[in-house]
Design a protein around this nucleic acid. Sequence first.
DNA 1: ATTGGCGAATTTGTAATACAAGTTTTAGAA
DNA 2: TTCTAAAACTTGTATTACAAATTCGCCAAT
Lengths: 221, 221
Amino acid sequence: MPRSDLSSATDQVFDYLSRGIASGTWKPGDKLPSEAQLCRQLGASRVTVRSAISRLTGLGLARSQQGRGTFVCPPAPPPVPDDLLGLQNADRLSVFEFRKIIESESAALAAIRATSADVLEMEQSILGMESGKSDEDVAEQDMAFHCLVARASGNEVILRIFQVMRSIYIQMFEDNVSLLGKTGTEHHRRILLAIQTRDMQTARSCMLDHLDDTMRAICRP
Amino acid sequence: MPRSDLSSATDQVFDYLSRGIASGTWKPGDKLPSEAQLCRQLGASRVTVRSAISRLTGLGLARSQQGRGTFVCPPAPPPVPDDLLGLQNADRLSVFEFRKIIESESAALAAIRATSADVLEMEQSILGMESGKSDEDVAEQDMAFHCLVARASGNEVILRIFQVMRSIYIQMFEDNVSLLGKTGTEHHRRILLAIQTRDMQTARSCMLDHLDDTMRAICRP
DNA sequence: ATTGGCGAATTTGTAATACAAGTTTTAGAA
DNA sequence: TTCTAAAACTTGTATTACAAATTCGCCAAT
């Protein structure tokens, strides 16, 4: 593969491979064609192909194993912003204090701004929580409801912050999902009712009560 | 360079180079030793050295130029969390609504938890704001005060979120620093007084008033 | 002395070949 | 059928060679 005027041969092979990974031609866990195959297919030398693959491994997109081949890595774990990395072990009270501030006000705003579509999705979330089989299912629907409230607040900043914190919230429930059970559904119903009736104060206080209950369940096992 | 039991030769060369970059042995813009030099120094073949350098370029740590050499890249541009990138152009009202929720409650918590050291730093921030020459100085001290309140809230989550949002707040004041002036100092004084006297309600309402005023100054030029 | 150009030395980019080392597959024997 | 060992395949490393781009120094001409 001779040099192109615009980019090096290595660049071209790298583009070919990274594009293939990004587009799903090769999915996580898949084995890339062997270096010899790529040489034949792309008309490049092994040096060029290996250089491109090294770049892939540098980016964490693939991993080579001597004797086996080169495999596509699973997508990077949910990227937690550097500034929030220190929160991985933040004390639970601080996290719940934060949630109480944000989510109670989100519920109040949702009481003003929620659309009928928002309400419908919240209802479905509650139904899904009631009919959830495993603890994981219930926890997922639980989190989904809170996310819907954040969205219904009509404030994009609140929603984005919620999504950033989501992984930290989830992590906090690890090994505690069984403690929650379905007691939260009743709280969710009350919150939704307040939102439907446009009752800001009640929505806010119900969310506060709900998070207080959840905190007690988590922090005092 | 024969294989080690623990890692490949490429890994070792890569570690050597990336460590050198991280530790500042080679600073941004510096030229790394030529491939030939590295081969001699490390006793590795050029294939191995080039493979390691390819990984560096994949990570964006270095850039190779034919005929010139390989140069250390400047550190990555200020990392704005992916989830928050969409907020760069978020409507200002949403941002201020969010700030009002978080910072009013932060002020209330600070009224309970602020230490004498916190209060001292807040006083210094206010003095620095009054004596600030340029608009930029004033704006910087203004932001510093709000950051101190977040810290004095005693909630690590609140502080971290503030730091994440900081760049977005600052960006919002670009081209508007002159509109603020020093009217904020009076508000800051009132907030600090409420914190000093442990008056949660007043601290909260003063912060709300302050952010309302700021929003009016920014959004209605 | 300064400037100009030209060629040599450096340096990275690509290729071809060879072998080492690890894994998988396959063929054959028990 | 099952187990074993050889063959085939695959990545890791080394060596050599040349191409292409840049830098440097030397030398000549002005």
